[in-house]
Write a protein that binds this DNA or RNA. Sequence first.
DNA 1: TTAGTATATAATGATGCACTTATATAAGTA
DNA 2: TACTTATATAAGTGCATCATTATATACTAA
Lengths: 115, 115
Amino acid sequence: MNVNTKLDLQEVSQIMKLLGDKTRLTMMKMLQSQDFCVCEFVELFNMSQPAISQHLRKLKDIGLVKESRKRQWVFYSFNRDHDCAFLVEDLLKHLPDQKERLAQLEAQGLRISCD
Amino acid sequence: MNVNTKLDLQEVSQIMKLLGDKTRLTMMKMLQSQDFCVCEFVELFNMSQPAISQHLRKLKDIGLVKESRKRQWVFYSFNRDHDCAFLVEDLLKHLPDQKERLAQLEAQGLRISCD
DNA sequence: TTAGTATATAATGATGCACTTATATAAGTA
DNA sequence: TACTTATATAAGTGCATCATTATATACTAA
């Protein structure tokens, strides 16, 4: 056994359920490397803005992401303080990075930067 | 980045969806340390036999478990040949072992051994 | 203030999922 | 053979989930 602190099975299964959706799993993979605002996700996923907001809401409700408003945008970030953050990060490491998606955003001039 | 071979995101999300159910997640945790037959699971989870069979069917369909008939029983085992086996195993390591469940089975004299 | 942009919430509909009960199949035993 | 035990499959039901459209809220800029 190489892990000492054990997580709650119920909580882990809830997180797995959230990551069982392709859109949310992709979002988390992207958020692992940088923050994104809602409108960027709306451009990247072929889906309505409310659908995106609802996915982010679920991730936020369970604590996997944090939100912060910057000017007119709401940015979401990976919450590394979550109990299960390391578990989720390990899992995401096995997934292909989503560089093409980011490149696509930039190509369309839709990347939002807020400095 | 500490992982070289990347898994298919679609496939991983399907597996996460399956593990998003508490019963199946517990089953996988238990199967990580030893094989179980259907009737043992039926005793341990407060659930009908068809419900248990259906959960095991889903795990089998996606390839996470294998089945083998031994005399009148069907035993299920963790399939370590699956693409995502190492990912799933890593994940399960974070969960509390289910020793009490096994102890409960043995206390009731319901543990099946097939040698 | 008014208009425009970004996001969230509400209501709704279609589909999926996890159980149930009833029944079928398969193996073991008398 | 008939009976029992173990498991799988089928059909049905209630509830959850994921999308949609419509609308509300929040912020920015003119």
